[in-house]
């Protein structure tokens, strides 16, 4: 019995070795993109760069980042394609990114690419924090529609709002980073203290608030726009509200992992990731793209969307991240016990 098992094992390792021996270079790509985006991106990239084959490892932002950092001593990923710029900056601080300026990357919006030369990462698109507003529940409970962050302080919303705990969720951090960027840190803490009164739950996961709002568990969840679009397409009575008083944003970005054994192929993929065809593809799901002049095909975004983004220094925020999270935890996490 044991012998047969060992044979099976040997056969398995043999087949995976054979797969690697194919002519195309197999690139291990870590990503936190939505699952439905993976297949079109893979197809487009493999068509544009015929010498590569993409093998995705997809997980939530936190898990994939933790995994990449844990693997630092012996990196497994060749390329990271579609991960929060905050995560990439953390990796950059640990010297985990291979400096390389992809062909045409200088054309990207300056705020949406690495400020180093050569670049360590390049942006793909921006996603913003948004309010997932369940219209069905709102009608039932007679809740007004909020249009600004300030509106959320309305006492009528007491216990109706969910947001991710920034200590466990990148989305949660993105949201408070936006408030800090728009209002300045002191006023942002004041705002969050007021908002705390209306929050029902700080969830562990970044996707939970919008999912819960979509299922009608809560009237509204603070999340990011992309998530809300997906859920609405599934039939949830959701309205995606991008507040008009300045929203924080995060970038989805691409980087080459230092220590990759397929540097040449990784660079070709990085080139593709900033190309116009790739940007047009991102535009199917995201409203604001890193390459100026590429129009998003997503409907439902306000025309002046771009103006709503707060001016935030991503690198500064990344550096402040640990302090802000600790401060947040001491203010709000201690009260996390059930009310």
């Amino acid at each position: 019995m044991l012998k047969r098992a060992l044979l099976a094992l040997a056969a398995l390792t043999a087949t995976s070795a054979m797969a690697e021996a194919q002519t195309r270079t197999r690139l291990m790509v870590y990503t936190a993109l939505e699952t439905e985006q993976l297949a079109p991106l893979k197809a487009a990239a493999e068509a544009a760069v015929p010498t590569i084959e993409i093998a995705w490892v997809r997980d939530s932002t936190g898990v994939i980042t933790a995994r990449a950092i844990a693997e630092r001593a012996n990196p497994r990923a060749d390329v990271i394609w579609g991960l929060s710029a905050f995560s990439l900056l953390q990796m950059e601080a640990q010297e985990m990114l291979e400096p390389y300026t992809p062909r045409g990357a200088e054309a990207l919006r300056p705020a949406m690419r690495s400020d180093r030369s050569p670049m360590t990462w390049t942006g793909m698109d921006a996603f913003v924090s948004a309010i997932c507003f369940n219209t069905a529940v709102a009608a039932q409970r007679n809740l007004p529609r909020p249009s600004t962050w300030a509106d959320l302080l309305n006492p009528a919303y007491r216990g109706q709002i969910v947001m991710p705990n920034p200590n466990s969720s990148g989305t949660g951090f993105l949201t408070i980073a936006g408030w800090v960027g728009a209002q300045g840190e002191a006023r942002a803490w004041q705002y969050m203290t007021g908002l705390h009164e209306n929050i029902q739950v700080y969830t562990h996961s970044g996707s939970a608030p919008c999912n819960n709002a979509a299922r009608g568990e809560y009237a509204m969840g603070l999340s990011f726009d992309m998530r809300a679009v997906t859920l609405r397409n599934q039939g949830a009575p959701l309205e995606i509200i991008v507040p008009t008083d300045g929203v924080g944003y995060d970038l989805e970005a691409t980087a080459i992992v230092r220590g990759t054994r397929n540097l040449e192929a990784a660079q070709r993929l990085a080139d593709f990731a900033v190309s116009r065809p790739a940007m047009q593809l991102y535009g199917r799901w995201y409203a604001l793209l890193a390459l100026p002049g590429v129009e998003s095909t997503v409907r439902g975004y306000p025309a002046e969307f771009e103006q709503r983004l707060v001016s935030q220094d991503i690198r500064a925020m990344a550096n402040e991240r640990e302090r802000i999270l600790r401060e947040w935890a001491s203010r709000f996490d201690g009260k996390s016990a059930p009310r």
Partner: peptide
Amino acid sequence: TDVYKQVVGQLDF
């Protein structure tokens, strides 16, 4: 979940 929070949320191994 705190282990998860520390490792996955804050990347503090």
